[in-house]
Design a protein around this nucleic acid. Structure first.
Lengths: 242, 242
DNA sequence: CGATCAATAATGTATAGATGAAATGTCGTG
DNA sequence: CACGACATTTCATCTATACATTATTGATCG
């Protein structure tokens, strides 16, 4: 019951320092842009040498969690998702890159009690969520239906966020750092209702993307997106760490 | 002659060491499984302290390019898609995970002159390639058609590889380290010919995956895969570096 | 001949101090 | 008052050294 967060593994000193700093950032105690203690301060706090602190911080900088600058100090990096690893599908950028006008229209926005969310065999309890169903448009024609749950236990600030003009996706990546994400991608036939909303023939091919994002063991959000197959494709790029 | 590989920017000493070792691995000079010099040897070669060498090697180990063991030394890691960052779709594992029997049948295997490959607006010259068209089966029913180019300038050993019983995908990930990959994923309607091979109705939804892989600036391989939409979905998971 | 165990060689971790580079602050001059 | 030169602070890196850890190696012993 004490497994505070998975497990604190103080294997080595610099690993412990790294883990603690990381925990504070992921917990939100140190927010993006915040300056964190100087190496000298941490050195004093942990009673170790600067090299040890340096190793921990260099490691965090390598993964992109923090950003270090000479003299300017070390700050928590804003949660860009890349780390050079992945370009998450940014619908708006994608649409505008094709020269089309992006549009967003929320259809539904309601609170869902915990019981409403049941998926997978996992007994994981997912708390109360805010559920947003929305349509994304390119030049006024709908290209994507999105059903999204944002779990308020993990992201309490989402309760008061305004999703009438801004879709929840960009808001989340801008405000909430995550540690893990899973995408499930499939090709499906459009169901009649879906087809009507997307203005395509029934049975037309659609791209289904189910995305789930975690911070540590907590599920942050689950999204189910249905794209018009003829209007959209995903690209994911994996590159060097640089 | 000076831009040996992109650019050697010896910003710092350990970065330079890291870059040089990395270059030798990616160039194929040091192959997976090879033991590379000990820290003491590198220390002598670069005329620096062991800590500096250690920093470079630790960094490489963190990204998964090399594997380090006490006493046993450091070896070039076999190119798993490392770092737990991405689970590349392994068709065979996926099929067998569902309890089905995996099958592979090559349909075509020929050399293609350089001129045959033309894609994108890029003027990049892609050399001679080996082209393999194949079908992957689950319990003897076809689920995937794959068209693959392997570029022999970048992967000369592929010229003599045996792709009659083993698909080129697994062979490549086992033998060739890559630095960059791009996936383009779309939902399409099956064309009549494709539908016939996949034993589905014409117009049925299919998942199209176009994958392109680089090592540095060189294109290694381009694959176009058409999955039966009802039989398959992709999952990609991005997780912590641990 | 084979199992056991100690020597050894490699990496992993840590400390302390020196040096370098860059942004900030201060002071002096036009 | 404005602007440039210098000093200061602070972080980044490198060196040198020491000890810890661990798997291989090889010698010893049953």
């Amino acid at each position: 019951m004490h497994d505070h967060a998975t497990d604190t593994r103080p294997a080595t000193l610099h690993a412990r320092i790294r883990a603690e700093v990381e925990a504070r950032i992921l917990s939100g105690e140190w927010k993006p842009g915040d300056r964190l203690p100087t190496e000298t301060e941490l050195m004093a706090r942990y009673g170790c040498s600067r090299m040890t602190v340096n190793k921990a911080m260099a490691s965090l900088a390598a993964t992109g969690l923090i950003s270090r600058n000479r003299r300017a100090g070390t700050v928590v990096a804003r949660p860009r998702m890349h780390a050079g690893v992945l370009t998450i599908p940014d619908i708006r950028a994608d649409i505008e890159a094709r020269g089309a006008r992006y549009g967003y229209r929320p259809l539904l926005d309601e609170m869902r009690p915990p019981c409403c969310v049941h998926l997978g065999a996992e007994g994981h309890h997912l708390g109360q969520s805010r559920f947003i169903r929305s349509v994304h448009l390119a030049d006024d024609s709908p290209v994507l239906i999105e059903d999204r749950h944002v779990f308020l236990d993990a992201v309490p600030t989402a309760a008061s966020a305004d999703f009438t003009s801004q879709p929840p996706g960009p808001w989340l990546v801008a405000h909430v750092p995550w540690t893990e994400a899973e995408h499930r991608i499939a090709a499906i036939s459009a169901e009649p209702v879906t087809a009507k909303v997307l203005e395509i023939g029934p049975g037309a091919p659609c791209l289904l993307v189910e995305r789930r994002t975690w911070r540590g063991a907590e599920t942050l959000t689950i999204a189910k997106q249905v794209f018009r197959g003829d209007a959209f494709d995903l690209t994911a790029r994996f590159g060097p760490t640089a």
